[in-house]
Design a protein around this nucleic acid. Structure first.
Length: 471
RNA sequence: GGCGGCAUAGCCAAGUGGUAAGGCAGAGCUCUGCAAAAGCUCCAUUCCCCAGUUCAAAUCUGGGUGCCGCCUCCA
C-alpha cells in the first residue's frame, strides 16, 4: 500500500518514498525544557508515536531523533530566578518530559541529543558556514546571512522583502541585514558559555537542530516534524543553515501538526494557559487521552476545555467495552462449521480492516481510523446480537482491534493493573453472593448491593452470561 | 500589512469532482425481575455567503465574510 504524506514544503500530499528502502529516518523537534510538559507537547509526541508504529507494522525500520534544546534564554532566566545552574533546570524538565511521555504510552526516541553535549558539532557547522560565505562574525557574534541563500522562504512561503518590512523589533546594528539571524551569541556575564573561535558564547536557536540532525541522520533524511508554529522561523532557518552548509536537502518530507487550543487560544507557555500532561495522566487513562488527541486529524487544530475529556470518554468507553467483551467471548467461541452469518461478517471485518490500512496510508488519518473502529464495534455487536459466536470471526475482529486500536493507536485499555486485579477478585466474590440473592428472588437486597456499588462508581450489568462490572 | 490554514447537523469530526463516515447528545422500539449494556430505526435534499467551470462541486476557480496560526520565545 502506498503511503501518502502531506509535505509542507510542496503543500501537497506526496507518495512517501524513503531515502533508503525499508527504513524511515525522522527528526522531530523536541522541547525547550524549562517548565512542565503540557498537552500541546503531547500532541506531536503521540502523533509521531503512532506514525512510527504504523511504519514499523508496514515492515519499515525506524530511526527517530528528538532533540532537547537545553541551552536557551528562558532556561537561563529560570536558573537565575532559582539560583541554580541552568543545566540543572533543563535536566529536571527533561526528566519530567520523559516521564510524561511514558505516562502517555509514547515509545521513546532512539536518540535524544542535547545542545549542551554537541558544542563541537555546532561550532564546526558555524565554521563551515563562515568558510562558505553564508555567515559572518562580528564582535563575538556570528550571523547567518540570509540573502546568501536564494531559496530562503521556500518552506514558509515568505518573501525576504516582506520579512524585512515585517521586522517589528529593534535590529541589531551589527547585522548586515535585518533578516540575518544569530548562529552564535557572545556570552553575557554570568551566563553559561562555551569556547569557540569567536570567543566565549553559546549557540543561537536553530543551529542546534541543523548540527544534531546532520550528526545522527545525515542529509536528506525522511521526515522532519514539529508543530506548525515552528515553520517560521525555526524550520526555515534550519533549512537555510543545513542546505547552505551541505548543498544537500535537509529533509524529504516536512510534517507539521496543528496547534492545541484552549478557548480559541493557542496553549502556550508564554500565555500561561497550559494544562500539564501530568495533571491529565493523573486523572485519566493514557488510552483515553490518546483517543482524544487522535480523534482529530493531526494537521487540524484541536480544542481543549474543562470537561472535554469526559465528553470524549463516553464514546471511548463503548469502544473499549466491546473489545473487552470480545476478549471474554473468545474463550467460549465455537469453531464448528461456519454459517452464512459468519462468512458475511468475516468479509465485512476484512473490509473494515482494509479501510483502516487506507486511512493510515492517507496522511495518517487517525480520525478516520477511529471512525472505522466504531463501525467494527457495531459490526461485532450486531453479529453477537444475531447469535454469532464463531471463533474465526471473533478472532479476526479481535486481531484488527488489537493491531490498529491497541498496537498502533494505543487507544484501547485491554489490561488491568495489579490493583485492579484485586478489586476484580473482590467484586467477583460480591457479585457471586448477589447472584445467589437473585436466584432466590431476593431482589430488594440484590438491588441494594447494586445501588450502593453504583454510588461507589461501580456499574453492574446483569447479562445472560452472568454479571459484569466496570468502574 | 505579508504568509499559511480553517469554516460540514445541537456539539465533536471524516470526506478534496460522482451524489454527506463516525462519535456524543436526542426520540422511538427490542431485550431485561428492574436497571445497565447491547442491538434496530429515526435525527444535514445538504456542507459560511455570492458568482463561475462541469453531465456532475462540500470537494475546482474568482470574490466576499468570519475564525485560527506564523511574521517575536513557542509543539
Amino acid at each position: 500500500m502506498k503511503i501518502q504524506v502531506y509535505n509542507t514544503l510542496t503543500q501537497t500530499k506526496e507518495e512517501f518514498v524513503p531515502r533508503k528502502p525499508g527504513e524511515v529516518s525522522l527528526y522531530v523537534c523536541g522541547v525547550t525544557p524549562y517548565s512542565d510538559t503540557h498537552l500541546g507537547h503531547a500532541r506531536p509526541s503521540v502523533i509521531w508515536d503512532v506514525i512510527k508504529k504504523f511504519f514499523r507494522y508496514q515492515g519499515y525500520k525506524t530511526f527517530h531523533v528528538q532533540n532537547f534544546t537545553d541551552v536557551d534564554d528562558k532556561i537561563i532566566q529560570r536558573a537565575k530566578e532559582q539560583g541554580v545552574p541552568a543545566l540543572e533546570i533543563s535536566q529536571r524538565y527533561i526528566e519530567e518530559y520523559l516521564e510524561s511521555m511514558d505516562a502517555l504510552g509514547v515509545e521513546r526516541a532512539d536518540v535524544y541529543p542535547k545542545v549542551s553535549e554537541h558544542m563541537p558539532e555546532i561550532v564546526q557547522l558555524v565554521e563551515t558556514l563562515i568558510e562558505k560565505d553564508h555567515a559572518y562574525a562580528t564582535q563575538g557574534d556570528v550571523f547567518f546571512h540570509v540573502a546568501s541563500f536564494p531559496e530562503y522562504g521556500k518552506l514558509s512561503k515568505q518573501k525576504l522583502d516582506e520579512l524585512r518590512q515585517g521586522t517589528r523589533f529593534e535590529v541589531d546594528p551589527s547585522k548586515r541585514d535585518a533578516t540575518d539571524f544569530a548562529l552564535w551569541k557572545q556570552a553575557k556575564p554570568g551566563e553559561p558559555a562555551w569556547d569557540s573561535p569567536w570567543g566565549e558564547g553559546r549557540p543561537g536557536w536553530h543551529i542546534e537542530c541543523s548540527a544534531m540532525s546532520y550528526k545522527y541522520l545525515g542529509t536528506e533524511f525522511d521526515f522532519h516534524g514539529g508543530g506548525n508554529d515552528l515553520i517560521f522561523p525555526h524550520h526555515e532557518n534550519e533549512i537555510a543553515q543545513s542546505e547552505a552548509a551541505t548543498d544537500e536537502p535537509l529533509a524529504r518530507y516536512w510534517v507539521h501538526n496543528g496547534m492545541l487550543n484552549l478557548k480559541d487560544m493557542k496553549m502556550s507557555k508564554s500565555l500561561g494557559n497550559v494544562i500539564s500532561v501530568q495533571q491529565l495522566t493523573a486523572r485519566y487513562p493514557k488510552e483515553l487521552l490518546r483517543f482524544y488527541l487522535l480523534s482529530t486529524h493531526y494537521r487540524s487544530s484541536l480544542e481543549y476545555y474543562e470537561g472535554k475529556i469526559e465528553e470524549v470518554a463516553k464514546g471511548w468507553n463503548r469502544l473499549n467495552d466491546t473489545v473487552l467483551k470480545l476478549q471474554e467471548d473468545l474463550v467460549r467461541a465455537n469453531s464448528e462449521q461456519s454459517t452464512d452469518l459468519d462468512q458475511k461478517t468475516l468479509e465485512r471485518v476484512a473490509e473494515l480492516e482494509r479501510g483502516l490500512l487506507e486511512a493510515f496510508s492517507d496522511d495518517f488519518n487517525t480520525a478516520m481510523a477511529i471512525g472505522i473502529l466504531f463501525e467494527l464495534v457495531r459490526e461485532v455487536n450486531t453479529y453477537k446480537h444475531n447469535g454469532g459466536n464463531h471463533l474465526s470471526v471473533l478472532q479476526k475482529a479481535w486481531d484488527v482491534f488489537a493491531l490498529y486500536g491497541s498496537d498502533i493507536l494505543g487507544v484501547l485499555q485491554l489490561e488491568k493493573s495489579e490493583q485492579e486485579g484485586l478489586v476484580d477478585s473482590l467484586l467477583d466474590l460480591l457479585l457471586e453472593l448477589r447472584e445467589e440473592l437473585r436466584r432466590t428472588k431476593n431482589f430488594a437486597l440484590a438491588d441494594q448491593i447494586r445501588n450502593q456499588l453504583t454510588d461507589l462508581g461501580i456499574t453492574i450489568e446483569d447479562t445472560p452470561q452472568g454479571p459484569r462490572w466496570k468502574v
